[in-house]
């Protein structure tokens, strides 16, 4: 059993290493702005795999992941700006603090189902970021908290673009989340989660503690979101209520579903969507010369339309759609292959 776990960890390490190589290669090839977009994508990815685990494996939904991101973001800002913690320590602490908030909420969440849970998490998304405005002395109010931009270490050379350094920090954070979640979903805890999702009674009969398992899913998910929020603070050098409006929580949720929940690739597509869609929608709005008020709401409208289309065509999201497509192609290829092979025999 222990040997099996080790094999799993090695496999996760290989996956993470390959992803790290791909990320590093891409970030070295692109310009400064794309580096920042990679950084954005990375912190969204960290938050999204948490949500993906919660929805896809835990069978619970959360419309309040923006709030967990806010918790992580403010934790990092306070620890770095006021207490002068190193980034790694602050990010770890931010993850722990959001996990704690997740544990409190998760205990309640394990007793709630469907729309009730959605309501609770929605309230959290509305209320929590406003705490910053309630305590302007410590949390900076609407003005927010500012941290100094992290300077690239000297061994990277003096001409190393600071944007690439931000991308690497966010990328490493996202990979840490990936490693952890990849392992978890293949462990006993992951199987327990799926068992509870599919049939609570059956899972309980098999010895799974239903409430505890669901709370664990919530805690993990909140921890990932907190890490994502903390990374966002590092990338933007700012933690501010305006970064975590209700719309963010809805956007993350919609993107996770469109990308495909319960799949790490789904989280990847979702992160790409979150980063690229605002720019696309801006271009669309500009080419159609829409008024400011319409343009400002266009991204959310596009998420809505995509969500409907995805639910109708590909209920499993982009990832499931792609899998279907690749399956079709494979079948087409192999059938043609068998035809060409059978030809000489004739």
């Amino acid at each position: 059993m222990r040997a099996l776990a080790r094999v799993g960890a090695v496999r996760a390490a290989v996956v993470v290493l390959l992803a790290a190589l791909a990320f590093g290669a891409v970030s070295s090839l692109v310009g400064e702005y794309r580096d920042l977009q990679l950084a954005d994508g990375a912190y969204y990815f960290a938050a999204l795999i948490g949500l993906s685990v919660l929805i896809g494996f835990g069978g619970k939904i959360s419309l309040g992941h923006g709030a967990f991101m806010a918790v992580g973001a403010y934790a990092v800002a306070l620890l770095v700006a006021d207490e002068h913690w190193p980034l790694v320590g602050a990010l770890a602490a931010a993850t722990a603090v959001s996990a704690l908030v997740g544990a409190v909420l998760g205990a309640a969440a394990s007793r709630l189902q469907g729309p009730y849970l959605a309501g609770v998490t929605l309230t959290l998304a509305v209320a929590l970021p406003q705490i910053g405005n309630r305590f302007p002395e410590t949390l900076g109010g609407e003005n927010g908290l500012v941290i100094d931009p992290p300077a690239p270490p000297s061994f990277l050379g003096s001409s190393f673009p600071p944007q690439r350094y931000l991308a690497w920090i966010a990328g490493l954070g996202a990979l840490a989340a990936l490693f952890f979640i990849y392992n978890m979903t293949r462990s006993g805890a992951g199987r327990a989660l799926r068992a509870v999702r599919d049939d609570e009674v059956a899972a309980a009969l098999c010895g799974c503690h239903v409430g505890r398992t669901q709370t664990v899913a919530f805690v993990l998910s909140a921890a990932c979101a907190g890490l994502g929020g903390g990374l966002a603070t590092v990338v933007l050098q700012l933690a501010q209520p305006g970064a975590f409006p209700l719309e963010l929580s809805l956007r993350i949720f919609a993107a996770a579903v469109i990308g495909g929940v319960g799949s790490l690739w789904g989280a990847f597509w979702a992160a790409a969507l979150l980063v690229l869609l605002p720019n696309w929608s801006h271009d669309i709005a500009q080419s159609l010369s829409l008024s400011g008020n319409v343009a400002a709401n266009l991204p959310l409208a596009i998420y809505g339309v995509m969500l409907i289309v995805a639910m109708l065509l590909w209920p499993g999201g982009i990832q499931a759609g792609l899998r279907q497509l690749s399956g079709l192609l494979k079948r087409a290829y192999s059938s043609r292959h068998s035809v060409t092979q059978s030809n000489p025999a004739k």
Binding site: L18, A19, V26, L29, V30, R34
Partner: peptide
Amino acid sequence: AWLLAVAAGGLAVVG
């Protein structure tokens, strides 16, 4: 993983 690299590369159109 290769697919990942290709996909990420596809997103990265250098300005």
